[in-house]
Design a binder for these strands. Structure first.
Lengths: 344, 344
DNA sequence: TTTAGCACTCGGATATCCGGAGTGCTAACA
DNA sequence: TGTTAGCACTCCGGATATCCGAGTGCTAAA
């Protein structure tokens, strides 16, 4: 469909435009090193490429810029794998350098580093804990009416909240409850907890605790999942340096969307796994019509549990961003799996 | 120094400008309800107020806007206490409605609600845990080489991180370590932990654990404070709706600063307690020269432990924002103290 | 002391002009 | 037949000119 020469020219135009943010004309394109055609020849080819929908003109007498279809073709067929620089590799590796770590910290830092390296905005979804299994429950009374409930999963995730203590339960009741929970629920995936409570735990509570109703209610509060999606952002301000986002109103829509954690989670949550690239309108969302989003999932034991993403203008440095994101998602998966999987 | 009439006029001008964002001229001012002077009279007074530095003109033949000094005088002497609307009170109260809660959630939500009510940006610093006291330590092995360390404070704060298990320590060692820590460190303020470890815990470890060096190192890792300041933002995008922030470059500086959690923490950390208002240049920081920041600390047991703040243009609705912030900081203090203080 | 009148100022919106980079087309060329 | 040079044309963007109106300061009258 496209001749080799047309492909070559398309690639040169996209590369040039990504780099300069200016429409590229036949004259300047022909001066580019490695380009051995005269402006007139290029004009002909460019006209053809435009007719086929790979290029467009901002106005009738200006140079060409890639259309969304042009970018799409570029990432699907013309993308040369990008070799990460030492600096980049070093920065990414520094994430995992510490011996002591908290997954949340690592994930948060990932967002920051990714945005610094790319100078776009980054969004990282923290690992889903939905499928991970209960390891231990702890109820720690703080005073006569408040306690902290702690739930630890096999993935090292620690969930905690403050619960108020019903007067009807004394400290030996609490101990009994904790014992029952640990006994019955160890190894149960979090999404089944609620279920198990009604089917198994409730009966035991009734047997062993006099204030049964309070105990059951309290148990449910204790294990209530905080549910909240963890979404971390890095370098949103970077977007403001991009020439395509000089317009405050346009950028406001983007920023407003970027503050809706829930929507962003829906948009980016890990699905099939692997790499996802959405260019311009491909993001169903109106606010992102001039943006591209590249995202990759990271996994735990082979199951995708979270994603790391980059948001930038459609005129994005695709090769570099893809290289970085793929690298980081691999590293994250490796570290998570290494840390929390039994070697045996 | 200022006549009553001048004060009255200054107030009217500030109120008008806060509301309209347009320089206010003598003609329109005189039409304002409650204003019984002719434009000419107002012109004279306004000229005087300008000479004294309370007003300024964007250019020689335009209406007046308040100078920073004008705003300062306004907040110091002219501020009428603002009565919160039902809607506002209701929204604020909803924060504390749940029975089960996590302090972090409440604090995060505070930022969101505050920004929604004000349509400025809000910044909330999570409670300092520096002074709170150790309640319990838990070491939970996940597999043969990784464990989760959990530290609970008397303020219900749960700190946790993943630590790698030295081969030299077996599970009975871990138990011993945990026992020693709980025995010796209960009630010790977090900022003294490091100290206590070297003076008291080290000796005990040497006595009871054969692999003493590994045990000590491990202990230190376990109790390492995550140190990280908790800073939550709400409604940054709101700033983009303010007419004074139409300029992307100006707003970029602000947003970049707002992403530096550490700097913001320094800027806003609770000091004397009480209300702080910084207008324009009073924020030493260049990026905030067109902003005002209002912040109030909230406290636990009378000690200020965190702050809630609003960032907006110098043309800010001071009365309303101050009302909201004071109300919320009082509520937060009350709830925190109620939850985590022994009633006895 | 307050007010009306008036000449003056200046920003912002609108219209006009102009240069330059770029295009499409045609005709000459290898 | 594909490539290139030449040329007339287009259109953006910046610079300049013009105009309008809201607002001011000043003076003089009430």
């Amino acid at each position: 469909m496209l001749t080799d020469r047309q492909l070559f020219i398309l690639q040169a135009i996209v590369d040039d435009y990504i780099q300069s943010a200016e429409p590229v004309g036949s004259r300047s394109l022909s001066k580019q090193s490695g380009m051995s055609y005269s402006p007139a020849t290029l004009r002909n080819e460019m006209a053809d490429l435009e007719e086929m929908g790979f290029l467009e003109k901002p106005h009738s007498s200006s140079g060409r810029i890639p259309s969304e279809r042009g970018y799409r073709h570029y990432v699907d067929h013309l993308l040369l794998p990008h070799q990460l620089s030492n600096r980049e590799i070093h920065d990414l590796r520094s994430l995992f350098a510490r011996r002591v770590m908290e997954t949340e910290q690592v994930v948060k830092q990932s967002a920051t580093i990714l945005s610094e390296l790319t100078s776009y905005a980054s969004i990282v979804l923290g690992p889903e804990i939905f499928e991970s299994k209960m390891k231990q429950v702890q109820i720690i009374p703080l005073n006569d009416r408040t306690a902290v409930a702690i739930l630890v999963t096999d993935t090292g995730h620690v969930e905690n909240h403050t619960v108020s203590l019903p007067e009807a339960l004394n400290s030996s009741d609490l101990e009994k409850i904790a014992n029952i929970l640990n006994d019955r629920l160890r190894g149960v995936p979090l999404y089944q907890l609620q279920n198990k409570i009604t089917t198994e735990v409730a009966g035991l509570l009734r047997q062993h605790i006099s204030s049964y109703r309070e105990a059951l209610l309290f148990t449910e509060e204790t294990l209530q999942k905080s549910s909240e999606e963890k979404v971390y952002y890095g370098g949103k301000a970077n977007l403001l340096s991009q020439p395509e986002f000089r317009d405050v109103d346009k950028v406001r829509m983007i920023f407003e969307l970027l503050e809706e954690d829930h929507t962003m989670h829906e948009l980016l949550k890990p699905e099939q796994g692997g790499l996802m690239i959405r260019i311009g309108q491909e993001n169903a969302n109106q606010a992102f019509e001039d943006c591209s989003i590249i995202s990759a999932s990271y996994s735990f034991n082979g199951n995708p549990v979270g994603t790391i993403s980059i948001v930038g203008p459609t005129r994005m440095e695709y090769p570099r961003v893809i290289g970085l994101i793929e690298h980081l998602s691999r590293d994250l998966s490796k570290v998570l799996t290494n840390l929390y999987t039994d070697r045996s």
